[in-house]
Design a protein around this nucleic acid. Structure first.
Length: 520
DNA sequence: AAGTCCTACAACCGCAGACCT
DNA sequence: TAGGTCTGCGGTTGTAGGACT
């Protein structure tokens, strides 16, 4: 509690609010909703009320806060305030380079899934990450830089297609919707823990160390610097049902380029019907890319869109047709796209139009010589700079085994492949089949639900919150099981207190006061 | 010094899924 | 099974403060 109050007192918003408190409390300054609910910045007293309420009653049932505590805030507001500001273990301050790297790479993989990203960044909130990303995106757009460092842009492209703007659930639904025999799509409930093994690196950083034991889905974020170890607190033995594909191993070693994915020892067991790539939004690599361009979320722009530099910089060649990204690691090889589909011409036109519009909007003053160019140049060596020029190559290998009858689809799966996706890939003709497999393998096995921060869940007294179902993959220990068509994790009963019944169980917001790590 | 622009942050809103009755 | 409620998520907006012109 004292920590909490200290945290609160350190928040600028509360400082600001405190000054307004007297005047605002129920006064004209505090806007109130139609139901007499207050809106706007929270005051310290409101925070205190909320903190006290949560301390007593736990998280969840946010709508009851208003009723029971007299707080004139709607449940959503309370939840938001708690999650983003009041809950323990929140990390304040700017993102570390490692965190930034994680965000970039996660975004490249899962798109605007801020909550999932947040689950990978202890102490960070989805809102924080979202704000960071949006700011970064604008900055890079302004600087004419692609959103992603070259070493991760490929999967960004491929995945971003599935990130819909209009529907927040479209992406996840593709992965979450029950698909009998497509258990790989539900690996988000896998357990994550580190486990050394031989591994191929998907993001070829300077470090690895993360591992995917055969048939053991592993998602582990190791920490080498500022990050507290994540998700390593549980060691889980996970028997993999034969109806599932194993997850790849992911481990983030908090170094630039340290996001590694182990696809080696990848023994896929496919017993289901022929894999339908469309299920996960996979199409041929070419069409996939095209779709990516056209279906990007509003806030997630492609390199084409993300640059306000002349589109021609992508089209005319600076880098000579298909010769790879060349020396400028941030450059985008449009020729590669252009060659792949006639639709790309249209995209080019669109991109150019966008570029022109953007330019006209900003007129000539967009990049005035001095300050802006200074800013722009700093962009080029901004915080992602450490990734530029690295040897990072999206690379993985997979060897899939198969059982059961497999037709064409499985044939691909059973093909041992070693792919290199990234800069180096451009130096070779793209093997469409291989790429398809690679993509499918990656996409199939990328955990679609990240584990939640370690302070969620866990053991402890049960006075607190309504725990949710196992959205969380953290906590003591789990036993993997197949629940119908989904893979879920069950906490060992020995380590988990009985749950309250009759109440919806929650996880992400669940916490134990007795089990909360210290505030950073 | 004043005005403008940009960034970071906080909060709200709408939608969708899960759960309850 | 349908409707209602609760919650989480992602998009968007508002604003304070700093940087820059």
């Amino acid at each position: 509690m004292s920590k909490m109050m200290m945290l609160m007192n350190n928040e600028s918003v509360d400082e600001r609010a405190a000054t307004e408190e007297a005047a605002e409390e129920d006064g004209p300054g505090g806007s109130r909703g139609g139901a007499g609910l207050k809106k706007g910045p929270w005051t310290t007293s409101e925070d205190a009320i909320l903190v006290e309420y949560v301390r007593k009653h736990g998280e969840g049932n946010w709508n009851a806060v208003q009723k029971n505590s007299g707080l004139a805030r709607c449940g959503k507001s309370c939840r938001l305030r708690w999650a983003n500001h009041l809950r323990p273990n929140l990390k304040k301050g700017s993102f570390s380079p490692d965190e930034e790297r994680i965000i970039i790479e996660l975004h490249a993989k899962i798109g605007n899934k801020w909550a999932r990203m947040a689950s990978q960044l202890p102490g960070r909130t989805d809102n924080e990450i979202k704000n960071y990303w949006n700011t970064r995106m604008k900055r890079r757009q302004r600087a004419g830089l692609p959103l992603y460092p070259h070493d991760i842009r490929h999967y960004q492209n491929d995945n971003s297609q599935r990130h819909s703007t209009s529907s927040s659930s479209s992406f996840s639904s593709q992965f979450h919707q029950p698909k009998p025999n497509y258990a790989p799509f539900h690996h988000h409930r896998s357990a994550f823990h580190s486990q050394p093994s031989d591994s191929a690196q998907i993001f070829n950083g300077n470090n690895t160390g993360f591992a995917l034991p055969i048939n053991s889905p592993v998602f582990s974020f190791g920490s080498s610097s500022s990050h507290p170890p994540m998700l390593n607190q549980s060691t889980t033995h996970i028997p993999i049902p034969q109806t599932t594909l194993p997850n790849p191993a992911f481990q983030y070693n908090a170094h630039p380029g340290g996001f590694n994915c182990n696809f080696s020892n990848f023994n896929a067991i496919v017993t289901g019907p022929p894999f339908d790539a469309a299920v996960v939004g996979i199409q041929s690599p070419l069409s996939h890319r095209v779709n990516m361009v056209t279906e990007l979320p509003s806030t997630q722009t492609t390199p084409l869109q993300s640059t306000t530099t002349p589109a021609s910089s992508y089209t005319n060649g600076g880098r000579g047709g298909g010769g790879g990204v060349g020396n400028n690691a941030e450059e985008f090889n449009f020729e590669e796209y252009r060659e792949n589909s006639g639709l790309l011409d249209a995209l080019l036109t669109e991109a150019q139009a966008l570029s022109r519009n953007e330019k006209s909007k900003r007129k000539a003053s967009v990049m005035p010589a001095t300050a802006k160019s200074k800013r722009a140049s700093s962009e080029n060596e901004d915080r992602e700079g450490h990734t530029v020029g690295s040897e990072s190559v999206l690379k993985y290998s997979c060897e899939t085994g198969s059982t059961g009858d497999e037709n064409g689809r499985t044939e691909n799966f059973s093909t041992s492949c070693h792919s290199s996706v990234g800069i180096e890939q451009k130096e070779e003709p793209v093997d469409v089949n291989s790429m398809d497999d690679d993509l499918i393998s990656l996409l199939n096995n990328f955990p679609t639900s990240m584990p939640v921060p370690d302070w969620y869940g866990g053991s402890g007294d049960r006075n607190h919150c309504n725990n949710k179902k196992e959205k969380s993959s953290v906590t003591s220990s789990f036993t993997r099981r197949v629940d119908e068509d989904d893979v879920v994790l069950e906490q060992d009963s020995s380590s988990v207190p009985a749950r309250t019944t009759g109440k919806r169980e929650r996880s992400l917001d669940s916490c134990y006061w007795n089990n909360m790590p210290g505030i950073c």
